[in-house]
Amino acid sequence: MRSIIEYLREIVLGIWSLLKGMKVTSTYFFSPGKIVTQKYPENRKSLVMLERFKGEVVMPHNEKNEHKCTGCGICEINCPNGTIEIISKVIITEDGKKKKAIDKHIYRLGMCTFCALCVKTCPSNALAFSQKFEHAVFNRALLNKILNKPGSQLMKGVE
C-alpha cells in the first residue's frame, strides 16, 4: 500500500514540477514586452555604443588637421602582434633643425586584438578608440588603415 502511495505521489509531484516550468515559459510567451532582442539594422540610428567600447584604434585630428602623434614608435613596440607599424620621416623644422616625424601610422584592423596597450602607453595621447563596430569589408586589404590623415601635421606644443 505504501508503495502505491509513493508511486502516486511521484506522479503528482512530477507533473506539478512540469506544470511549474510550463507556467514560466507560457508567462514569457504571453508577455511580448519582455523581448530582449533588437532589430539591428533598423535601429542603427538610435544605437549608441558605450563610450569606452573598443571599436577600432583611431588617431583624433583637430579641425586644423593636426594630430598628436610624434612618431616615437612606443605603440609599435607595445603591440603584441605587430598590428601597428610606424613609418617615420625626417622633417626640417622652421628653425632649421632636423626632426623625426610620422609619415604613415599603419594600423591593421584585421590583426588587432583590442588589448588597448597602444592607447594606454602612448605618451602624447595621440591614439583613441572609436565606437565604430561595423568593420565588415569585401577586401581584406581595406582593413589595413593609415591613421594619420593625408597632409596632417603635428599639433603645436606636443613633443
Binding site: 515559459t25 514569457y28 510567451f29 523581448i35
Partner: peptide
C-alpha cells in the same frame, strides 16, 4: 515564432 516568444526573442522578421 512560438519558441521565439517563449525565449524572449523576436523570431523570424
Amino acid at each position: 515564432k512560438v519558441c521565439a516568444f517563449i525565449q524572449n526573442r523576436l523570431g523570424p522578421n
